[in-house]
Structure formats: C-alpha cells, structure tokens
Amino acid sequence: MQLTGEPEVRPVFRSSGTGELFQLLRDGAPRTRADLIAMTGMARSTIGGRIDLLLDSGLVAPAGGAGSTGGRPPATFAFNPSSRVVLAVDLGATHARLALTDLASRVLAAHQAPLLIAEGPDHVLAWVVAQGQRLLAEAGREVGDLLSIGVGLPGPVEHATGRPTNPPIMPGWDDADVRGILADRFGSAVLVDNDVNIMALGEHRTAWKDVSDLLFVKLATGIGAGIIADGRLRRGAQGAAGDLGHVAVPDGGDVLCRCGNTGCLEAIASGQAVADALAAEGVGVHSGADVVALVRAGDLRASLAVRQAGRRIGAVLTTCVSLLNPSVIAIGGIMAGAGEHLLAGIREIVYQRSLPLATQHLRIVGSVTGPDAGVIGASVMAIDHVLAPDAVDLLVG
C-alpha cells in the first residue's frame, strides 16, 4: 500500500531480448524509442538495435511522427500485422472451415465446405493443403509469407505432439502425424488442438477478453468444453480436459454411447441423440441441424426435446460451475441455433442446483462468434505461438 506523500513506485519491465520488447508493441499502439526506453529502462543503443531487428523482420513498421513541441517530431513504430499470414483450419465431423488471416486474426480469405472427417487423414489433409494453397493465391500471398498453421480436430489431441489420441469419430486418425504432414507441405510451424479448445480461444479473444474464467460448450454431433481459467486455456495433463460428452448422466439409463459406455451425456443430449429420439417418435429429422430447423419453425415436439436436452446438459454443467466457478458459459455448435429453448433448459438446472455464490454473476449465453469461433481460435493459437518472445527472437535472429 502506498503511503500519502510518497512517490508511486512502478514496476520496471525487464527485457531478455528482442522478442520481449516486441510484446510491448503487440497492442498496435505507436510508440517512440523514448517511450520504450521509459517503459523498459534499457539503454537507447539497446532499444535502437532491437527496433532495427524488428523493422528488418517486418513485424514492426514506421508509424509516422509523434507530437512535438518544437523541432522534428520523433519517429514512432508499431506492430505490422500484415507482414505475415497464418492459416486457420477448423475441422468438424462433417464440415471444414479454413481462413487465411493476418497476425491480428483479421480474415483475408476464407472457405468452408462439407467434409467427412471419417474419410481419414490422407484425404482430409490433402484437401486442407489444396485449399490452403488456394487461399494464399486468392489473398495474393506467397507460401513464404505463411508463418504458422493452427488446426482444430473433432477429437482428443495430445497438444504437445499434435497427434489425435483414440478419437471416437475419426477412424484412421489415431496417432496421425498431422503436424508433420502439414509442416512438410507448407514449411511452417503447425499447432494442433481439439476443436472445442480452439473455439474457446476464439470466443474468449473475440467477445470476452476481459473475462478471466470462461467455459465454452460445443453442442453438435458430440459434446465438449473448452476451459479458460485465469485467462488461459487449460488442456489438462494429456489434453483431455473438458470432455463433457462422456460424463455419465444420472438418468442416462442404459443408452449406449459410441465410446462403449452407457448413459453418457452425448448419447442422450447431443444433436444426433435428440434427432434420433424424435425420429423414433415419427418426426422426420436425421440430424441436429434438422432439429434446429424445426425449433425455428415453431415445432412443439422439437422445442420440448431441445429444452429437455438442455436440462440434462445443465445437470452436468452444474458440477462444472461448482468446480471451476466460471463467469461466463458460452454455448456454441450447431445446437446453439435452437436459441432460448436450449439455453432455458440449461439455465433452469444450473441456477437451481448451483450455490448462489457461484451463480450470482454467472452468464449463460449463446456463442457470440458462432460458427467462426473455430477458425478465429485456430488463428489465435497459431499466432500466439509464433509471436511468443522466444519465437520472435528466433525469427529476427
């Protein structure tokens, strides 16, 4: 605590290299050499040398002159996000979305198409390579401009190696060297993660940057969650954190799940599970998307089924609220299109069963970023990796 009359003591930024200095410029605000000297306490010659390295790399560019009380205005410098690009890849069970972005995650070119992940890694990754090359050409960029690639897969991924691990809906993908295959074709750094994790990153960075604790729940063919705690994505020991779909539900009964167990949340409350239950009653639906379309058209049976699925999801999320105490639960995936019918069921149980302390400021909302959450998150993941201090030191060195 500061005593009255004493000067305020500000912590001094300690830089270990050019990459650390670059972090001060990532917010995009123009700064002079004098600004950086004041912020870091480093010598003018040190600042000058490191700024020169960043200018030569293209990561930083001149930003004009600062205001001056007389004489020549001092030069300013700012982050130049257009200097390089990244390829963001969001692969789902039946779809693919790709985007080429700059280093601020602004989309330069994009493409989406139906694609079955069950076709296997050879087919799917060859398609990704072809579309990635097409997006580079469309944006007028060279392969040499591609700094990194971020990939989201609809199954468990060991993030350290980028290899899928026994993914239940991805036949032929177990231990596939996704990182190696794409790195060989593009010559860039490749980051691979579970699709829900990258969606959580995209939602957090786009809509809830000031929220430290967020749970992103994807409701689609499967059910999963991405966990942001203390402002950081939490993957768990082997990258399996957030696998809500295979939590046993108390009233799940003996419904068989594709994981081999019975009574899993995914088996009774996923988009496909709701569609199957309605089809058994004679309703003409085949998928979660069909269910959402009926709900939007005002179909009563579909609306009631979705609300009941929301209650079952809420029962599992109640435990998550007690364990993680998030400020926001964002609901995404195809089933989020059912809107308030789904959210009402989730809120009903979460607010009923959780302690007031955990829910007094909790918001349960539909995803703000919607279907773009995955590609935005893949871009964020890839950018944060290659613009980290050590990576920038290597790039400019």
Rank of each mutant, 00 (worst) to 15 (best):
V9T: 08
A130G: 14
G345L: 14
V396R: 13
W173K: 03
L357A: 15
A336Y: 07
D210R: 06
A267Q: 02
G374S: 10
H286N: 08
D213Y: 01
A293G: 02
F216N: 04
Q272L: 12
I198K: 12
S57R: 00
I349S: 01
R307N: 09
G49D: 04
G67I: 09
S15K: 11
S322K: 11
F22A: 13
D90H: 06
G345N: 14
I198F: 02
E281V: 04
A78V: 10
C320N: 07
L387E: 07
A96H: 03
G366A: 13
L103Y: 08
I198C: 02
G41I: 06
L233M: 13
A109E: 11
R141F: 12
D177N: 15
T262Y: 04
G70Q: 13
G332V: 06
P121T: 04
A280Y: 11
I37D: 06
A277L: 02
R234D: 01
L317P: 07
G152H: 01
G366Y: 09
D213E: 05
G162D: 08
A38I: 03
V295W: 14
E340L: 06
D254T: 15
R296W: 05
G263F: 10
T18V: 15
N261L: 09
C264P: 02
D254P: 03
S327N: 09
V60Y: 14
Q133T: 09
R307I: 04
V321Y: 09
G152M: 09
F79M: 05
A305I: 04
G288E: 04
L24E: 01
I181F: 08
V380E: 12
I117V: 12
S15N: 00
G231W: 03
A78C: 06
T101C: 15
L342P: 01
G70P: 10
S303H: 00
I364F: 10
A241Q: 02
V247L: 13
K218R: 00
V85Y: 11
G5M: 08
R84T: 03
S82K: 07
N197Y: 09
D52E: 14
G288H: 05
S82W: 10
